[in-house]
């Protein structure tokens, strides 16, 4: 522990990142460039989120990491261990007890409270990127609020599939101003983004940070005749019976057997501890 500065990054770097975070909070949805550092993990594994977490953590914080909602996947475990080792911070798997939560691809089911910080790992921060390859042009489009192109993407979805088929990284408009990529969270999570906690987004390879202050208005883009639909699988969780959570589909044998379970492992565990049972929970318990 003593070989590292607290939370790995040096203090100058953390100050630089904090300035970017503050600027991001002041202009919700605006992508702030920052001098992203090399981290001891490959790009795509959350280098942006890790740097934001490192600049946000204090020794008193309790840290939680989820990857696709789960606390026990490789990515989540290694990042949690990283900050245990380099920062000596307390860690938890319980959403309510965490003060800083780093996430990849999900927002926890349990509503977050004031005082909590949710840090997203972002692969590609620019929502217009796949339609407009020029960074100069997309910056200008953001500056001048020219967002017609974003609807072209949704139009293409409907013309090809009959409905808006974008199911993750669904573009949102923040406070009626900036169009923002919410990182690859399922669109089911989009309505949760108007929350009491602070949300920070870090893209390490692309060197961008953006942020949402608490209770910021976040509207998912849509058409008048094709309104936004935060869809989910039409099943309850087979473990805890929850009907309101986002589900993973798990293939359980080679004869077409499948089960649906909460992608948020902490939420599912808490419900089962409270006595809730799903369709397949009995044999699981036995």
């Amino acid at each position: 522990m003593s070989e590292y500065n607290f939370a790995y990054l040096d203090e100058q770097t953390k100050r630089m990142i904090r300035r970017a975070i503050l600027k991001g909070l002041a202009i919700p949805g605006y992508q702030v460039p920052f001098a992203s550092r090399e981290m001891p993990m490959p790009y795509g594994w959350g280098t942006g989120g890790v740097q934001v977490s490192a600049a946000t953590l204090t020794p008193d914080d309790t840290f939680k990491v989820i990857d696709q909602g789960a606390d026990d996947t490789t990515n989540a475990v290694s990042i949690r261990k990283f900050f245990e080792k380099t920062g000596g911070v307390a860690v938890t798997e319980r959403t309510a007890e965490a003060t800083v939560i780093q996430t990849r691809h999900r927002i926890p089911e349990e509503p977050l409270k004031e005082g909590q910080v949710l840090v997203y790992q972002v692969p590609i921060p620019e929502p217009l990127r796949f339609l407009e390859p020029s960074e100069v042009e997309t910056r200008k489009m953001h500056a001048l609020e020219e967002y017609g192109l974003m609807h072209v993407k949704l139009y293409e979805d409907i013309s090809r599939h009959g409905h808006i088929s974008t199911a993750y990284a669904y573009p949102v408009k923040v406070e009626g101003r900036y169009v923002m990529d919410p990182s690859p969270i399922p669109k089911f999570d989009n309505p949760k983004m108007e929350m009491a906690a602070i949300q920070l987004f870090g893209a390490g390879r692309e060197q961008r940070i953006y942020a949402l202050p608490p209770h910021t208005q976040v509207v998912s883009l849509d058409f008048e005749d094709h309104p936004f639909d935060p869809s989910k699988a039409a099943h309850p969780c087979d473990m805890c019976g929850a009907g309101d959570s986002y589900l993973d589909e798990v293939i359980v044998d080679d004869r077409g057997g499948r089960m649906f379970v909460c992608s948020d492992t902490d939420y599912c565990r808490a419900r089962r501890e409270a006595g809730h049972r799903g369709r397949l929970a009995a044999e699981e318990m036995a």
Binding site: G148, L149, V152, Y155, E156, F223, D225
Partner: peptide, 27 residues
């Protein structure tokens, strides 16, 4: 033209750029 966007999307882009938000009308 946007070569990776359908013909309808290409024609509709200017409409959406000036605020059209009704898919059926655009089409």
């Amino acid at each position: 033209l946007r070569m990776n966007v359908s013909a309808g999307g290409n024609v509709g882009e200017r409409l959406m750029a000036v605020g059209a938000r009704h898919y059926g009308d655009i089409r």
